[in-house]
Lab assay of single mutants.
Amino acid sequence: NKFNKEQQWATYEILNLPNLNEEQRKAFIDSLKDDPSQSANLLAEAKKLNDAQA
């Protein structure tokens, strides 16, 4: 299913963002699990935070 693929991709991407700390990473991944339909939005937020902390 589409959300499952998006969720897996977003999880992979978030795990590989270098500037997030473990707590932030875990929070994003927990949110992905809670609502896979928000995968794209959550990934965008994670990338923004990652860039802000660069």
Results as ranks from 00 to 15, higher is better:
N4Q: 11
A44F: 11
E45R: 07
K47P: 00
K48E: 10
Q53V: 09
F28E: 00
S39V: 14
A10H: 07
L17W: 02
L20A: 00
D35K: 10
Q53R: 02
Q7T: 08
D30N: 12
E22K: 10
F3K: 02
S39R: 06
D34Q: 13
Y12H: 13
Q24H: 02
E6S: 03
F28M: 04
Q24V: 04
L15Q: 14
P18S: 05
E13A: 08
N19K: 03
N21H: 12
S31P: 02
A44W: 08
Q53D: 03
Q7K: 03
N16A: 14
K26F: 09
N50Q: 02
N16D: 07
E22I: 07
S37N: 06
L43T: 04
E45S: 07
K48F: 08
A54G: 14
N4W: 14
I29Q: 04
P36M: 05
K33W: 10
Q8K: 09
L49Q: 07
N50E: 02
D30F: 07
Y12S: 12
S37D: 07
F3A: 03
S31L: 12
K47G: 03
L17Q: 02
Q53K: 03
L42Y: 10
A54L: 10
R25Q: 10
A54P: 08
A40T: 11
I14T: 01
E45Y: 08
N41E: 13
L43A: 07
S31A: 13
K26V: 07
N1M: 03
L42P: 00
K47I: 13
A46H: 00
K33E: 14
N1Y: 01
A27I: 14
T11Q: 15
D34F: 10
K5I: 05
Q24Y: 02
N4G: 09
I14A: 01
N1K: 02
Q24T: 04
N50K: 00
E45L: 05
D51L: 12
W9K: 11
P18W: 04
K47A: 06
A54D: 09
E22N: 09
P18L: 06
E22P: 12
K5E: 15
A52P: 02
Y12W: 12
N41V: 09
L15M: 13
W9F: 14
E6M: 04
D51H: 11
K47E: 07
F28W: 02
A54I: 10
L32F: 03
I29G: 02
L17D: 00
A46P: 00
N19M: 08
L15P: 01
K33F: 15
F3M: 03
Y12R: 07
Q8P: 03
R25I: 05
L49V: 11
N41H: 11
R25Y: 03
D35V: 06
S31K: 14
A27F: 14
A44E: 15
E13W: 07
A27S: 11
L20P: 00
D51W: 08
A10G: 03
K26G: 08
D51F: 08
L17V: 00
E13I: 13
L42G: 01
Y12T: 14
A40M: 15
L15H: 09
N50V: 01
F3S: 03
P18V: 09
N21Y: 13
Q8L: 15
S37T: 09
N21I: 06
S37K: 10
K2D: 15
E23T: 07
E13H: 13
A27K: 12
L42K: 06
P36F: 05
W9E: 15
A10W: 05
Y12G: 12
D35T: 07
L42W: 08
A46F: 02
L42I: 15
A52D: 10
N16Y: 06
Y12P: 02
L20G: 00
T11A: 15
L20W: 00
E6F: 09
N16S: 12
K47V: 11
L42V: 15
Q7H: 06
E6P: 03
I29A: 04
S39N: 06
L49S: 03
K47M: 08
K5A: 15
Y12F: 15
N19F: 14
Q24G: 01
F28A: 03
K33I: 14
E22T: 09
S37Y: 05
D34Y: 10
L15D: 06
I29M: 10
K48V: 09
F3R: 00
S31D: 07
D51I: 10
N1P: 03
A52V: 14
N41D: 13
Q8A: 07
E22W: 12
S39A: 14
K2R: 05
Q24W: 02
K2F: 12
A27P: 02
E45N: 05
E13K: 05
T11L: 15
L17S: 01
T11K: 10
Q38R: 09
N4A: 05
L32N: 01
K5W: 08
L49P: 00
N16Q: 07
L20E: 00
N21G: 06
D51T: 09
E45M: 09
L42F: 09
L42Q: 04
N21E: 08
E23P: 06
L20D: 00
N4E: 15
N41L: 04
A10L: 05
K5P: 15
K26I: 08
L15G: 06
L49Y: 05
N50M: 01
N41A: 11
K48W: 05
A54V: 10
Q24D: 05
P18H: 07
E23W: 11
Q8I: 13
D51R: 06
D34H: 11
L49K: 05
A46E: 01
A44Q: 10
Y12L: 13
S39D: 04
N50P: 00
K2T: 12
E23M: 11
